[in-house]
């Protein structure tokens, strides 16, 4: 192999238009952040998909484990009173 180590992996986030959040588009390999940004432009925004790009080293992302899903998210499942539909208000009151 001519490249001693495989280039690190970067996650690419693209803001499709101002006013919206950056959203994960995919990933790519690049030797550094600057080149990751340039590659991201060619790989993920060939059709005006973006107004701004973030590249983040994949190794910097800390993810929750799928096994922890219940521990993390189940507690919010039984709190129906957090949703507006929980409350019975006569129609004539109207919405805010």
């Amino acid at each position: 192999m001519s490249t001693p180590d495989q280039w690190p992996l970067w996650e690419v986030f693209v803001r499709s238009k101002n006013g919206l959040s950056h959203k994960h588009s995919g990933s790519l390999h690049a030797p550094d952040a600057e080149m990751a940004l340039k590659n991201a432009r060619d790989v993920y925004t060939r059709r005006s998909e973006g107004t701004s790009i973030w590249v983040v080293p994949s190794s910097a992302i800390v993810a929750s484990a799928p096994d922890e899903r219940e521990v993390l998210f189940a507690p919010s499942d039984d709190k129906v009173y957090r949703h507006p539909t929980f409350y019975e208000i006569p129609d004539e009151v109207g919405h805010m």
């Binding site: 001519s2 490249t3 001693p4 280039w7 690049a30 030797p31 550094d32 600057e34 080149m35």
Partner: peptide, 16 residues
């Protein structure tokens, strides 16, 4: 294309 990958790696190292 090996030289391109090597140059990119070297450039990244130099910049760092």
């Amino acid at each position: 294309g090996a030289w391109v990958r090597e140059a990119a790696t070297a450039y990244a190292a130099k910049q760092a």
